[in-house]
Design a binder for these strands. Structure first.
Lengths: 200, 200
DNA sequence: GCAAAATGTTCTCCTTTTGTTCTCATCGAG
DNA sequence: CTCGATGAGAACAAAAGGAGAACATTTTGC
């Protein structure tokens, strides 16, 4: 959040909007904060917009829109426009016009790993990608896990539990063989819950 | 940790940050520790920064950022633990112990598309993935773009500009042929700047 | 529909607050 | 005594915050 005063502006806009169903005017914001100048308020709103907290419809009275009411006002939201595919322009998806990234990334027990190597390439996890790991010791069949083998070697593989209690770790790469281990040799460190990649 | 007093500073900064979502001002830290001088607090913060416990954004009010695991729990930030690969346990990456997601995702001119189809599968973009698009009309050679063809068909392809001015749109899928169009038929709507995927 | 009022926007000028950098003083341990 | 840690406080640059004028556009009142 930009600054103290901007935060107060945001809090008021948010409270007002939730109560009335529409945004306050600059003057109303100003009065509430004891500011005489609408220009000052506008500057605060602009700062908030730059950091993604809200959107301003230009020249419109009450033209301030909160970004995503669900996320308790945290940034991390992007408009979800629609599907792209072969055929027709981008369609807006009705009822799903915004995607809350924070819900996905705001973590309880998560961290990021940068992936090296191509062992999971057929699952779309490429060299250099970031994977979001949720720290836990248990994992279910078919989940992609960070497994520590013999306490010295950590890998990213898909987990398969065998009937005899042993574990098979399957790479997603036809050139690499699945590896089977006694349960005692493998310690699950976490499970992949997300992945992302930056193109620049 | 540098010294006892620095530890007290750090503890307060951490507690304050986790509770409020933003860092305290130097003055607030000083009051809490019974110090009269902001300069003293600044010296402690500098010492903590030198040892990697936090980061100071210069000249910024509330510009102290916790680093590493301390930051976990704040939206937009996840600890970046290190690389995972074949061989040895997770290594911490020195100097890169934190990744700011909000900087990447929260942006003025971006939106998300859900990808349908497998035309970019060899670039690791799978059916159902989300791609982050930055709205712009220009794109450079080799960038992955959202292209609108003849005003009716939007696709995700890698852009190649040919010498004669025409454009080639290359799928990342050996089963699909590259398509060549006159420049007039193609309108770039945006460029892929990121991608992510949720595993549940 | 039209004019007046209100609203949003941009600007410049100003004060206060904050972070930053100093120097100097104190105190305790080795 | 010397050194390091700590504090006080002054001085300064930058950021944060505000006032108000001027203007364009929208909204409102009739």
């Amino acid at each position: 959040m930009p600054t103290d005063r901007s935060r107060e502006v945001y809090d008021f806009v948010r409270a007002y909007t939730l109560r009335h169903g529409y945004a306050p005017k600059l003057r109303e914001i100003a009065v509430h904060l004891g500011i005489r100048s609408r220009g000052v308020v506008h500057r605060h709103l602009r700062a908030l917009e730059d950091e993604g907290w809200l959107r301003i419809e230009p020249e419109r009275a009450r033209g301030v829109r909160l970004r995503g009411h669900a996320a308790a006002g945290r940034p991390g939201q992007l408009p979800l426009l629609g599907r792209i595919a072969a055929g027709r322009p981008i369609e807006a998806i009705p009822g799903e016009d915004e995607i809350d990234l924070s819900e996905f990334f705001v973590n309880h027990n998560r961290f990021v790993l940068r992936v090296a190597g191509n062992s999971m390439i057929e699952d779309g996890i490429l060299d250099g990608d970031m994977v979001v790991i949720e720290k836990r010791e248990m994992a279910e069949n078919g989940e992609i896990v960070v497994a520590l083998i013999d306490g010295i070697e950590a890998t990213l593989k898909r987990l398969q539990r065998n009937r005899d209690g042993s574990l098979t770790l399957r790479p997603a790469n036809s050139n690499m063989p699945p590896l089977r281990y006694a349960a005692a040799r493998v310690r699950i460190q976490g499970v992949v819950v997300g992945q992302f990649r930056s193109y620049r």
